[in-house]
């Protein structure tokens, strides 16, 4: 059986998605003695996020590691994860996504879209960067032109902090930063380094507003066509891929200060007090926006999962 596996990072071993995909390939082909032939299509070769989500439903792609935006466009509740400053740390984020909350979301997504979500790995903890001044508090954001992804939830986030939000598509971002069309942007360390965004951004504030994700997705029709042994193999191998992907991205996020200052950026630490100010300014407004889009069910569930982890 042919398993076409699509992702969007470049085809080298330093890309977490690609390293994970290669591990998945050798794992699955080994465990099934080649009855499943994995073919990896890196670097958006088979299309961008939205097209790959459609491809999983059309059956033209069997498996993919997709980022949050395109998932939310097909399965709206996923956008609950864009509520900022919700997770205290990496361990909490993983625990919630691997626990009851993540399972319930995967089940709901399968029922509504026909796409199976095995789990998520990190797309990095998002931080603000800019080329104008060190930003340590919301008031420092005043008047900055921040690039956001082209979805309204990100506009709400940035505007709630007092900056002006400029939606720019990802391919135009490096050029827009270089030419100063925008002053700043927000991304995880992996993206800042891989797309060389640091070249034209002097300051990075480690505010960690959103933990963003890559979900490991499979066409359910394809999954149900597998033998039991093959299903087990695929499920186990996704775990290995996820672990590699998480390890690589999380290591970069954990060493953000060292990595980004080595690239010449000035790292602005954000103290817990300052982070609380960010949270107070942004979280209620974004939560309100998300509730107006998808209802209160999933935001409430997420709050409950976070609460349960804290009380553990």
């Amino acid at each position: 059986k042919d398993l076409k596996y699509a992702h969007f990072q470049s085809a080298d071993l330093s890309s977490p998605k690609h390293a994970a995909a290669l591990a998945f390939e050798s794992c699955v082909e080994g465990k099934t003695s080649g009855s499943i032939d994995v073919q990896i299509f890196p670097a958006s070769q088979l299309g961008g996020g939205s097209e790959i989500m459609e491809g999983l439903q059309l059956g033209t792609v069997q498996m993919a590691a997709v980022h949050d935006g395109p998932i939310s466009a097909v399965y709206k509740p996923f956008s609950v994860l864009a509520i900022p400053y919700i997770f205290d740390d990496q361990a909490m984020a993983w625990s919630v996504m691997d626990g009851e909350f993540g399972d319930a979301m995967a089940e709901d997504m399968l029922a509504k879209t026909g796409i199976r979500m095995f789990g998520v790995a990190d797309n990095g903890v998002r931080n603000f960067t800019n080329n104008v001044r060190p930003v340590a508090e919301p008031k420092d954001m005043e008047g900055l032109k921040m690039r956001v992804m082209t979805a309204p939830v990100w506009v709400t986030l940035v505007e709630s902090l007092g900056a002006s939000a400029t939606p720019v598509p990802w391919p135009e971002l490096p050029g827009a930063l270089q030419q100063g069309v925008v002053d700043g942007q927000e991304n995880g360390v992996t993206n800042i380094v891989n797309a060389s965004l640091y070249q034209h951004q002097k300051y990075v504030s480690l505010d960690g507003h959103v933990f963003s994700w890559h979900a490991y997705l499979m066409s359910e029709d394809f999954f149900q066509g597998l033998s039991d042994a093959e299903k087990t193999a695929v499920t186990q191998c996704v775990e290995i891929a996820k672990t590699i992907h998480r390890g690589m991205t999380a290591a970069q996020d954990a060493n953000a200060t060292a990595i980004l200052s080595e690239k010449g950026m000035e790292v602005v630490p954000v103290s817990p007090d300052q982070k609380a100010k960010f949270r107070a300014a942004a979280q209620p407004k974004v939560r309100e926006f998300v509730v107006s889009e998808i209802g209160a069910e999933w935001p409430d569930r997420l709050d409950a999962a976070v609460e349960a982890y804290r009380n553990q």
């Binding site: 939205s50 491809g55 033209t60 598509p169 391919p171």
Partner: peptide, 15 residues
């Protein structure tokens, strides 16, 4: 439907 998807996606680009 892959044909219609590519037809659309091929020119669905701001640049």
């Amino acid at each position: 439907l892959i044909a219609t998807q590519r037809m659309f996606a091929g020119i669905d680009s701001f640049p």
